[in-house]
Amino acid sequence: MSNSFGQLFRISTFGESHGRGIGVVIDGCPAGVTIDENFIQKELTRRKPGQSKITTQRREDDEFEILSGTFEGKSTGTPIALFIPNTNARSKDYSHIADKYRPSHADFTYDAKYGIRDYRGGGRSSARETAARVAAGAIAKTMLSTLGVEIYAYVSSVGDIHAPAYTELDLSRIEENIIRCPHPDTAERMIERIEEVRKSRDTIGGVVTGVIKNCPPGWGEPVFNKLHAALGHAMLGINAVKGFEYGSGFAGTEMRGSEHNDSFHMDGDRVRTDTNYSGGVQGGISNGEDIYFRVAFKPVATIMKDQESVNSSGEAATISGKGRHDPCVVPRAVPIVEAMAALVLADHYLLNKSSKL
């Protein structure tokens, strides 16, 4: 179960960072969905390593193969399997930590849980696994696009550098720079900060903001599978994520109810709200307004400086930073956040269809 996500639109991922490859099986995708291989590849390219000077220099083309579940460019309703081979793994870069626990990685906890771990790039705990989610998310995005649902994510902060609120931005400009921030002046400052941190052999964290437009009202479950809870579950399952908030989030705690309540009005035959502190979700169910949320990513745990730790025998050890790693994960996290949001919405679309005659 820990390798699967979703109820009706369900994915299971497999593979490791330095194994033969990674992949995903999508079960529950309705028949007749267009499987646009060019779009899937485009999404994978947005996430792949080695795409700019501020990302890891591991070179993976992330070309994929569809093994089942499609015919003549359409889904058949049977499980869709995709495989992405690893072509540029350098396992020798990790031989020095075969018996050592890297600070803030999953090395110790995997050993504690399983009694065995793949130390090559973190194995299953590596962010390499997220390529499989992006491939599945591309199919979910295609299905949702037929309903008019649009999903965006962008880098809204790096360290203490913040972009304006999404309502002040042109989201069509997200891909215009390597940091994926649609505010050019802020993007330039973010890139400079990451370069500065990289040259000091360190890393830095940031925030990715997600925005979902045109989600119809009525999606989501009212108790244990609330739409915002499902989004939170999805985002907190992404590597390096330390926090999730939607709508007004923690800032809403500083407001009074009279300020925070989203009053209703009629816009033609549609119920709308004057404000959107609710973040497009009320009672766990979408209300038709923009759904917006923020995902906090910690600084990448692998740094190019020596760190003190212990080995699997409990002896003191020094960890020396080696290999190819991101100085800041957020530029490559943008398509991952979009993909996980798409998987949640695809699942809740199908759940909503099954909830009434």
Rank of each mutant, 00 (worst) to 15 (best):
Q41L: 02
K42P: 00
G69I: 10
Y114T: 07
K113V: 10
L82G: 12
C181L: 10
R58Q: 03
E65D: 13
A131S: 06
Q57G: 00
G148H: 00
Q51L: 08
L67E: 13
G123N: 01
D160T: 15
I66T: 11
S104G: 01
A89I: 00
C181E: 09
I116Y: 07
H96G: 09
I80D: 11
R117A: 11
G148C: 01
G73T: 05
I80N: 11
T87A: 02
I54K: 09
D99Q: 14
K42T: 04
D62C: 10
S125P: 03
S75H: 03
A138L: 03
S156E: 15
I179Y: 04
D107T: 06
I84S: 13
G69H: 08
A165C: 06
E65F: 11
G122I: 03
E43D: 04
R117V: 12
L169C: 11
E72W: 00
L144C: 06
Y94Q: 06
P103R: 06
G121K: 04
V158F: 14
N38G: 00
T130Y: 08
I161Q: 13
D111A: 10
T78S: 12
S126V: 10
K113C: 06
D160H: 15
E176V: 05
G148T: 02
I40V: 12
G73W: 01
R102A: 11
F64P: 11
F39H: 00
T146D: 01
E168K: 05
T56I: 05
D93L: 02
S156D: 15
F71W: 11
R124H: 08
G137W: 03
S125M: 07
S68P: 08
L171N: 10
A81C: 15
E72M: 03
K141G: 03
H96P: 05
E129G: 03
Y119D: 08
I84E: 12
T76H: 07
I84V: 11
K100F: 03
H105N: 11
T167Q: 12
D160L: 14
S145D: 06
R59S: 12
I174H: 10
S126H: 09
T87Q: 01
Y114R: 04
D118W: 02
K141P: 01
D61W: 05
E129Q: 08
T130E: 13
A98S: 14
V158G: 14
A89W: 00
F108N: 02
A127Q: 11
T186K: 08
T142A: 01
T76L: 13
K42Q: 04
G159V: 15
H162L: 15
A165D: 15
Q41W: 00
T78Q: 13
G121N: 07
I80E: 13
T55F: 02
L171E: 11
S157Q: 15
T167V: 08
I178R: 11
A106S: 13
Y152E: 13
Y110R: 09
H105A: 09
N86G: 02
A136W: 09
N86W: 01
T70S: 07
G159D: 15
I40A: 05
P85I: 03
A81D: 14
T167W: 08
K141V: 03
D62W: 06
I40R: 01
I139H: 02
S75Y: 04
T142N: 00
N38Y: 00
Q41G: 01
G159I: 14
T130P: 08
G122E: 06
F64L: 15
T130V: 10
